[in-house]
Design a protein around this nucleic acid. Sequence first.
DNA 1: ATCTTGTATTTCGCTTGGCGAAATTCTATT
DNA 2: AATAGAATTTCGCCAAGCGAAATACAAGAT
Lengths: 241, 241
Amino acid sequence: MAEQIQKQGVEAVDRALALLDCFDEGASALGLADLARRSGLNKSTILRLSISLIRAGYLNRDNRGQFRLGPRTWQLGSLYRDTFRLPMELRAQLRTLSQSTGETASFYVRDGQRRICLLREEPIRAIRHALKEGVSLPLKDGASALVLRAFSSGDDAELGAIRTQGYAFSRGARDPDVGSLAVPVLRGHKLVGALTLSGPINRFDDARVAQILPVLLECSARIAKNLVLPDPEIGAALPIA
Amino acid sequence: MAEQIQKQGVEAVDRALALLDCFDEGASALGLADLARRSGLNKSTILRLSISLIRAGYLNRDNRGQFRLGPRTWQLGSLYRDTFRLPMELRAQLRTLSQSTGETASFYVRDGQRRICLLREEPIRAIRHALKEGVSLPLKDGASALVLRAFSSGDDAELGAIRTQGYAFSRGARDPDVGSLAVPVLRGHKLVGALTLSGPINRFDDARVAQILPVLLECSARIAKNLVLPDPEIGAALPIA
DNA sequence: ATCTTGTATTTCGCTTGGCGAAATTCTATT
DNA sequence: AATAGAATTTCGCCAAGCGAAATACAAGAT
């Protein structure tokens, strides 16, 4: 009774993608040895895989032979973002929202059983919620998670309350230091994403919420007005299982 | 003397990445059959490869079984973008630049023998230069290409002129309908990228250039001032050969 | 209800792609 | 020159993964 884990997929591809996973904020350039250490792969394997990755533009090698991410990642990512057919002013809206409230404004979309931070704008302020674009978070806790679930077709349960009040508020649910307030952005009756304001928990009390909620709602309405009509028919993807 | 093309890299990886290439503006959701047609791969191969791609988040299947790009693409892309350590206000700067001039403002970086449009902001105007973020263009023609080459270490030749005048202007070099004006953004003496304004060729005559060049230069200076000091040591990547 | 057509998924035996230890070459540093 | 650390190439063995074909599923049409 050795291994019961079901192996599926294509090994070589798993490994190649694992190489890309080696990069992160702190490591934007990695030598062959670094990559080998981080990925646990044999150097010759890495070299072989890298040929394919480089050819396709996902990876690059600079002057010194260091590996770096390639431009294709950004291109593909942009394509993914465009999938949601968001109005191009959305970013500007987030920015004004962030400036007028002094908190981090972000836009989340649902992807299967996760939520993705598609866009984000931070205020210029010492203490603020630092949030990286692109991060994938669980759909379990947090104001945006609640909104995304409450307004998704299918999913429902006791989230009816949120659906009627039209917003969600959470204090320290996912991260004990963070408070957040989220409202849905709808195209007709279909959910597009969640518009969220978040910051240090102590700044998010009931009084403050009462103060910023109207701003948030008004912004959401403004965004919805600018959504192009053709519905991309995205529909919540199936759980990645 | 059959085939002389040198085969290298890992076949399975090439194929998996080829799957991702099947998606584009017009095709954000593809059925298995579509994918097979576009990629030329066997359906069972696609299914097998897709398991790995889905597991890693590069691909997704929606309710109807259609394939879509997954969130990891955006995450990786954002990581690539952050590699350049650009000030977060850069986007806002582009926006004001675009608004005050009425043309498309963009920021290009060099990546090997190509230039990548990292960020872009378009004006709200009937006729404008539509440019997609993430696109990779040759380093041959266009104002931004000239700037990127003129200010890269190593590369030089007769581009000295551009280096001394501090900007490049091009009319219809790459695309016959487009005119563009570009200036470098420098961190110390090292090139970070090119700041560019582009639009329909007829709006880009000498008089106009004289008018917008100062705005562009001033914007570049403002951006440079906000660049965080630690140089990421990017260095032009080697040609993809 | 029964065909029909298009699409998706699973099976399975054969073969070739690709694995990785070790040898080799490159490039600093002392 | 000598040493060491990193990058690259070689090559024989074997299982990973290929794909044709069979099967299952879904949606109209009759």
